[in-house]
Simulated scan of single mutants.
Amino acid sequence: MTPSSLRDPPLSGPQPWLRALGRRCLALWPLKLVGNTVATIGFFPLYFWIMKNAGQPWTLPLTAFDRLIAFWPALLPVYLSLWLYIALPVFLAKDKRELSSFALGCAAMTFISLAVFWFVPTAIPNFTIDATPGTSLHFLKMVDAAGNAFPSLHVSFSVLACVVLARQLRDVAAPMWLRAFNIAWAAAIVYSTMAVRQHVLVDVLGGLALGIGFGLASRPRRSTRAVAVRPEPA
């Protein structure tokens, strides 16, 4: 028997990036669970109250791009997957600082959007679509009416989550396919907002600007400490 045959077999286990993601999920998980649940549930009453009580909405114009987007009701699950997607940066936050940064970004975007919804109410055009009674699409159209259109919070939440998730995945050295999947998921949600006739290009662009702006603002700031420079000897 050769010495090499006496060596222990290589240990098999999760990849380092998977273990790192697992540690991130376990950090502060009770706070994350309660906070995400309260924030999600608390958002909807105020959102629908403003939709019901704001003034007469201005109907947003259709563009040539909107007319190119085919009605695709099969993308409704993708549209609704936002509420799972936006929870991922919360549960992957490594500490209170990262968690607070994302939460404050979402809160600020919500505040700005709700203020616009109240003072400048907008609505999408009345599309003629086949939403058969009893289907999930019909329920969505009955509950989430055409108001509160600009800017699209659905889009801004997706973009902010995508930016933060990209940063988190990069920090744990996640594989490129996972990083690409993150971008593809966010892009699919953005596209679905138009494909299920919940938004048009104008409010999608508004949501993109809001999400990108807060995504850039949420970047961790590097601490700059003053370094004492000794004078060169004469």
Rank of each mutant, 00 (worst) to 15 (best):
A188N: 05
N148E: 04
V155C: 03
A108E: 07
A70F: 06
M194Q: 14
A186F: 10
S4N: 06
R179Q: 13
L76T: 03
A166L: 10
A70H: 13
I129Y: 12
R225G: 11
I212K: 10
L92T: 12
A107G: 05
L75H: 03
A103K: 07
S12K: 14
G215Y: 05
I183W: 13
F65H: 09
A108I: 15
P57Y: 06
Y85C: 07
A108R: 09
A195W: 03
P151H: 06
Q56A: 11
D95G: 13
C25M: 15
C162Q: 10
I189D: 01
A64V: 04
L210E: 01
K141F: 14
P233C: 09
A115C: 12
A173T: 09
V159Q: 02
L6E: 11
C106Q: 12
A184L: 15
E98R: 12
A93C: 04
L6D: 10
Q168D: 05
D144T: 01
P61Y: 13
S136D: 07
G13V: 05
A107P: 03
L84S: 08
K141P: 04
P125C: 12
P220D: 09
S223G: 05
V164H: 00
F65C: 04
A87K: 02
S101Q: 14
C25P: 00
F102I: 10
G206Y: 03
I129F: 05
T37K: 04
A70W: 06
A217M: 12
T110V: 11
F111I: 13
H199T: 00
P133R: 09
S136V: 07
P220E: 07
H138L: 02
I112W: 02
A173E: 15
I212Q: 05
P121Y: 05
E98G: 13
W72H: 14
V172D: 03
W185N: 09
A93R: 01
L137T: 06
P14G: 02
Y47M: 02
P61D: 11
A186T: 00
A209W: 02
F44K: 02
A108Q: 12
F48Q: 06
L33W: 07
R167T: 06
F48S: 01
L99S: 09
R170D: 13
L84C: 13
D8S: 14
L68Q: 14
W185D: 02
